[in-house]
Amino acid sequence: MNALLGRYGGMILTFVIWAAVFYFLLILPNKKKQKKHQEMIDSLKPGVEVITSGGIKGTVSSITPEFIQVKVDKGVNLTMTRSSIVRVLN
């Protein structure tokens, strides 16, 4: 067992270091970004101006657990998934 660790110890250590670097540089920042986006979506309420992933600017008129309705002009409401909101303007 000890000879096996001595032979492959450097390789195992290198793998562990690369896994840690990968986690801290790629996975952790992405998790933080997703959490921030989810908090923004959860805080939406009617009357808030938003921009969608398609670049459409509008005002939230109603929210359901799955969808959001955005008013873009008089009499024009678009229904889309909640995740398609990328930015809140006010």
Rank of each mutant, 00 (worst) to 15 (best):
G47P: 07
M80N: 07
I56Y: 02
E66D: 14
L4H: 09
Y8G: 05
V21W: 06
I51P: 02
S84Y: 06
Q38K: 12
V76M: 08
G47I: 04
I51S: 05
L4I: 14
K31R: 14
I41C: 01
L28P: 02
N90F: 03
E49K: 15
T81F: 10
Y23S: 11
G58V: 00
L4F: 09
K31Q: 13
N90S: 09
T79P: 03
A3T: 09
G75H: 01
S53I: 10
I12P: 02
V76A: 10
V16R: 04
G47W: 01
A19V: 05
Q34M: 10
A3D: 14
V72P: 00
F15E: 06
E39S: 03
S84W: 05
K57N: 13
I12R: 06
K57F: 04
S84K: 03
T59I: 13
P46K: 02
E39I: 08
V72Q: 00
A3W: 04
A3S: 10
S62N: 12
P29H: 02
P46S: 07
K32D: 06
E49T: 11
M1R: 10
F15T: 15
L5N: 12
G9N: 02
I17A: 13
H37N: 05
I56S: 07
M1D: 10
S83R: 08
L25D: 10
V70Q: 00
G47E: 06
K74M: 01
I56P: 00
K33F: 06
N30E: 15
F24Q: 15
K36C: 01
I68W: 00
Q38M: 06
R87S: 15
V88C: 04
E39Q: 08
T59H: 05
F22A: 15
K36E: 07
G47F: 00
K74S: 07
M1K: 08
L4M: 12
I85G: 00
S61H: 05
G75K: 03
G54K: 06
Q69T: 13
S61K: 09
L44Q: 03
Q34N: 13
P65M: 07
M40T: 01
F67N: 15
K35F: 05
S61D: 13
S83N: 09
F15D: 09
Q34R: 10
N90R: 02
M1F: 06
A19P: 01
V70M: 05
F67D: 10
T81A: 14
S53G: 12
Q34E: 11
K32R: 14
